[in-house]
Design a protein around this nucleic acid. Sequence first.
DNA 1: TCGATTTGCGGAGACAGTCTCCGTTTATTA
DNA 2: TAATAAACGGAGACTGTCTCCGCAAATCGA
Lengths: 205, 205
Amino acid sequence: MPPEPPKSRPRKPRADAQRNRARILEIAKRAFTRSGANVSLDDVARQARIGAGTLYRHFPTRDALLEAVYRTEAEKLAAAEREFAESMAPVEALRAWMLLFVDYIATKQLIAPALNNIVGGPSKLFECTSSQIRGAIHALVKRAIENGDIRPDLDPVDLLRALIGVSNVASAPDWAQSARRLVDILLLGSRPVPNTQARRTNLKA
Amino acid sequence: MPPEPPKSRPRKPRADAQRNRARILEIAKRAFTRSGANVSLDDVARQARIGAGTLYRHFPTRDALLEAVYRTEAEKLAAAEREFAESMAPVEALRAWMLLFVDYIATKQLIAPALNNIVGGPSKLFECTSSQIRGAIHALVKRAIENGDIRPDLDPVDLLRALIGVSNVASAPDWAQSARRLVDILLLGSRPVPNTQARRTNLKA
DNA sequence: TCGATTTGCGGAGACAGTCTCCGTTTATTA
DNA sequence: TAATAAACGGAGACTGTCTCCGCAAATCGA
C-alpha cells in the first residue's frame, strides 16, 4: 500500500481560503444591500480583490451566495426570539419579534433580494434560512396560544407571509408605520374569537 | 411656407405597428408567466418574429413591457371592483375582491415578476398599474367603513401590502388556503374596535 | 527547515443577454 | 403612382456569467 493515511485525515483548511470566504461575504452583503440582488458578481469579486474563479468556487451560484449572506441575519432573528420569549409577555414578545422581522428585512433591504430569486423560479434558497425563522415565530405563536391570546388554529406562517408584503414596499416613505399598523391588524385578527360578550372564553368552530 | 397642413395633422398610425405591438404584448405575457420576469427579451422578439429593434422601440425598457402587460390585469381588477360593489354587501365585496386579487397574482404568477423589479431598485412600474388597484381597494374599504364593518382609520394600502406577501410564496402548495385564512385575519383585525365594553384593547404603542 | 503534495487562486476567454444604430422596407397620403 | 414619413430588422458593441487550467501558496511529514 502506498503511504495512505488510514482513512480520514483531511488537511486543515487553508488560511487564505477562509479569509477570502469571509471577505466575499462581507463585500457581497454590502453590495446586495446597496444595489439589490442583481449586482454583477464579477464586480463583487473585483471589489473583494479576488478573481472571479475564486468567488464562484466558494459560492457556485448566486443563490448560494445570497443564502450564505442571509443565514447570519436569520440567526440573529432566531436569537431575538429566545430573548423576547424570556423577557416579555407572550403577545408582546410576538409583536416585538414581528416588528423586528420587518425592521430587519426592510431597513436592510435584506429579504427583498432573496424574494427576487424565489419568485424568479422556485429555489431552495428561502427553504434553508427560513427554517430558523419559521422556528422562531412558531415558538412565539405557540406560547401566545397557550396563554389564550391567539386562537389555536392559527398558522404562524400566515403571519410571516403577510409581513413579507410590507417589506417589499419598504421603499415607500411610510413603511415603518405601515408595518406597525399591519402588525396590529394581524394580532387583532388572530385573537381567539370572542363569543358575543365573553371576555376571554373561546369557542371552537 | 412649405406645404404644411395648418397645424396638427399627424398621420394615422401604421397598421403593422399596431399589429406588432399587440403581438409583442401577447407573447411577452406568455413568456413572463412561464419563465419569470428575466426571460431574454431578444428571445421574446424572436418568438414574436420581429427584430430586437422593433421590440425596444415599442417598449424601451423591460419595465415598460412589464407595465404594459400588467396594465390589462389591473384593469380587470378595477372592473371586478365595480361589479362586486354593486352586487354584494360591503365586507363581502371587499373580501371577494381581496381573494380575487390574490388569485390573479398568484395563479397567474403575475405580480411576482413585477415585484422582482420593484425591489431590484425603485422603479415607477408598480406606481402606474397600481393606481387602478389602489383605487379599487380604496373604494371597497370606504364603503365598508361607511357600513360600520371596518374601522375608519384603516389604510387600505396596508391590506394590499399584506396580500402581496401571500402571492410571493404562491408556489407553496397551500397558498390558496393560506390566502383565504389571511384575508379572514385581516378583515377581522380591521373591524371597528367594539367600543361598548371591549375597551380592553390590551396594548398601546 | 525543506521538499512533496494538495489546495486554492486568478483571469483569460467562450458564451449569452442587452440595447443601439442605421440602411432598408412599407404604409399612408396626395 | 410617387413622395415621404414611419417602422422594421438585425449586425454589432457592450456587459455580465461562469469555466477552465496553468500557477502560486499553504500544509505536512521527515
